[in-house]
């Protein structure tokens, strides 16, 4: 099914269909990931691939165009590149251990240590969270920085035009079609609350079950985006003004890095959460994980909302009828 979806994407011309297919592709892969025991990853892939990136792609289409024009140049050179790459990869698989083999190096070298040691060193049931936030916590700090970079990058690229538009005094833009829809508004209000609650659950329960700061951040952002879509951009921005979003974006990274820096002062290495409770390192680890996940959550929420604001504030090229 994945292959079919992917190949359809190659052949389809309608960008709208392509975007939808890419969402389908993500969902299908999320399913596959679950069967491969990667529940955390599946959760994230579904939230990101099928959720956020589809929304972003649609947002972009609204600002650009719906159809792809056929390419006139020969598809042969790209085909050769791809075939060579694929051949190299297949060549690489020749000495790979069989799928699922417990004797593979990947299964025998570092990974058993994580599984054996994390219960008493970190004391968090979800091993993935333990590695993510502590053993390899520095990678996750880097990842948060990547999100931060993307966030301010998008702002640096497309925030600027807003002022120009303000001058036009265009108020119609703010008025969404759905504004007068009473039921929709009530349901949305309820739903937004529920989504936020769920986000908080995912945020603080990430050490027990799949989930964590990133997923929570995405869900939280979805709540705001939904509010914005149903009501209007102006109204979300009253609840969560852009300047506050910018502060949040930075704040999350600062919380994360700050947690790490704190350990300096107690004489520990950077990001060694044992510093938070030197007598009981595993408690310290737990606090540390909660703190940094909070940092991740805040930054991700901030960035997603900021990106939504940036996209939504631009005058769309396509009117609603054209969809």
């Amino acid at each position: 099914m994945l292959v079919t979806t992917a190949i359809t994407v190659v052949r389809t011309r309608s960008l709208f269909a392509i975007v939808m297919l890419s969402g389908v592709f993500s969902l299908l892969s999320a399913l596959l990931l679950v069967t491969l025991d990667a529940v955390d990853v599946a959760f994230t892939e579904a939230a990101v691939g099928a959720g956020i990136s589809t929304v972003l792609l649609l947002g972009t289409l609204a600002l650009t165009s719906r159809f792809e024009r056929p390419v006139r140049r020969s598809p042969l050179p790209p085909l050769i590149v791809v075939l060579v790459t694929g051949a190299a990869l297949i060549y690489g698989t020749m000495d790979m251990p069989n799928f699922g083999s417990p004797e593979a190096p990947a299964q025998t070298h570092v990974s058993p240590d994580y599984i054996q040691r994390s219960p008493h060193e970190i004391g968090v049931p979800n091993i993935v969270t333990g590695i993510l936030a502590s053993y390899r916590g520095y990678d996750t700090l880097g990842e948060t920085a990547v999100v931060f970079t993307a966030g301010i990058g998008v702002l640096a690229l497309i925030r600027l035009l807003r002022r120009r538009r303000d001058g036009e005094g265009n108020t119609k833009e703010g008025a969404s079609l759905m504004r007068h829809h009473l039921i929709l508004r009530v349901v949305t209000k309820l739903l937004v609350g529920l989504i936020m609650l769920f986000a908080l659950y995912v945020q603080f329960h990430g050490d027990y079950s799949p989930g964590g700061g990133f997923q929570a951040g995405v869900i939280m952002a979805v709540a705001f985006i939904l509010y914005g879509v149903v009501f209007s951009l102006d109204q979300v921005q009253m609840v969560l003004p852009p300047w506050l979003v910018h502060k949040l974006v930075a704040l999350g990274v600062l919380i994360y890095a700050g947690t790490g820096i704190y350990s300096f002062f107690v004489g520990f290495n950077f990001l060694d959460y044992s510093a938070l409770n030197p007598q009981h390192p595993e408690h310290g680890q737990h606090y540390g994980i909660l703190l940094v996940e909070l940092g991740v959550g805040i930054t991700v929420t901030g960035v997603m909302v900021a990106i939504y604001y940036a996209f939504a504030a631009r005058p769309p090229i396509l009117s609603d009828e054209e969809w």
Binding site: A145, F148, I152, H246, K247, V249, A250, L251, V253, L254, A257, G260, I261, F264, G267, F268, N269, F270, D272, S274, A275, P278, P281
Partner: peptide
């Protein structure tokens, strides 16, 4: 080993960390 260390021992991470933290601080 959760070693106790002086600031001098943290130089390898500090060289990255200083600009790292300065960036969000600046935005903040």
């Amino acid at each position: 080993h959760h070693v106790s260390a002086s600031l001098g021992d943290h130089l390898p991470v500090l060289v990255v960390l200083v600009p790292f933290v300065a960036a969000p601080l600046l935005v903040f």
